[in-house]
Design a protein around this nucleic acid. Structure first.
Lengths: 217, 217
DNA sequence: GAACGATGTTCTCGACCAGAGAACGAAAGA
DNA sequence: TCTTTCGTTCTCTGGTCGAGAACATCGTTC
């Protein structure tokens, strides 16, 4: 990483590892998962503990999330609380189309799934909350890219190789801009289809996407 | 700080500064508030931005919280989601006693107010969510201390000076243990009275306190 | 009960990174 | 236009973060 603060990125990795762990998780498990030294993980957990971002079970000395996150989440101004704003429309849309709805937000290295509203059916479609979808090969990613400022999109795409692929991608992006939404078939997972539309904030920046996800008919 | 990761602590300071800022906040404002160099703040914001913890208004290039926090908060296991569990009982209690209810959680350097349920009245009692109450001089702090393991409480208290004060404090702590709750008059703010009771998690560790806060009769 | 393996925690030391401060560019106000 | 203020970039140096080993403490196994 040639920008930003390295050790903080590590700390956030650790925090997210704890967050996504199915239950309490210990120092060694985190260390092997992230490929770090135990001592480093331990020291990072100290600060996170100190600041209330994680809690420690003193019996097992394993870690889980603390309340601080909820406190901070609560502090996001209501007017730009994407999650809260999306909740109603998402379940309405799910009831209307009878398919799974997926909400995702823009991050630098991809599109992060932040919420799902799963249709009532025996067949659950498996997009897990927290997953990171690629920009170049997901309906959500491409929809967001299409509505970002030119240079920002280019910057996010400079890892995409291949002239031919880029041409195809650019055609899709302009189609997304033209029709306001984009479909994609089986890119994230074979047999799974998605239709995505962009979400803008108060200042008209594209900050995420909402998608209907279903199986091939 | 003789433990933990320094730069991460700074990053969290910045994150919390953004969180508690009434609206969008810029690099310089954060830097002066925390007494750091602008360049350092800027670099930290890069990582936080990269990871989705903050968002950047590209018009003003000021910062506010991102969606990542809400995603993580959502991931805390329901069974130990203090905030969600407390919501119902808090408003019940408020309606019953007709006073403001305050929920707080244990942190290393004090007791953090994580939620309030304000009674309907023209006179709002001012405990702001996010404030850090001292261990030694708040009903909440002392109640939590009283129900912590001995050595942990001692460690948190080693900054408290004065033989006489310590004796008085210890008497209050044992009273809190004996009667299960503790009152305190005007310690946090003159004229404001509080009664606090401890909250335990599934493994019987004291993780927070709930308090009724009101004015002197 | 001794030997073992796995865990969390502490320690030391060197490479390297984070932070201070200055400098730049741009935007806003006077 | 001049001035001020802000965000961003640059450079250099001291401090600090990470690897690895050592220690402590568990359960487990024989």
């Amino acid at each position: 990483m040639d920008f930003g603060v390295r050790s903080t990125a590590v700390a956030l990795d650790i925090l997210e590892t704890v967050a996504f762990a199915p239950k309490e998780i210990g120092v060694s498990a985190i260390a092997t998962e992230l490929g770090l030294a135990k001592s480093a993980v331990f020291r990072h957990l100290q600060t996170l503990l100190d600041r209330g971002y994680v809690r420690r079970n003193s019996a097992t000395s394993r870690y889980r999330l603390g309340v601080k996150l909820q406190l901070l989440a609560q502090l996001t101004a209501d007017e730009d609380n994407l999650l809260a704003a999306a909740e109603g429309p998402m379940s309405d849309l799910r009831d209307e189309v009878g398919e799974t709805i997926v909400l995702s937000a823009l991050e630098r290295s991809g599109v992060r799934v932040v919420a799902t509203s799963i249709r009532n059916s025996m067949l659950e479609i498996g997009v897990r909350v927290g997953s990171l979808l690629p920009f170049a090969s997901s309906a959500q990613g491409k929809t967001i890219l299409a509505h970002l400022p030119r240079e920002m999109a280019d910057q996010l795409l400079d890892s995409v190789q291949g002239e031919k692929i880029l041409r195809k991608l650019n055609r899709e992006l302009s189609r997304a801009r033209r029709q306001g939404w984009l479909e994609s078939a089986g890119e994230v997972m074979p047999g799974v289809n998605a239709i995505a539309a962009p979400i803008f904030d108060a200042s008209d920046s594209c900050i995420g996407a909402i998608a209907v996800v279903g199986l091939f008919a």
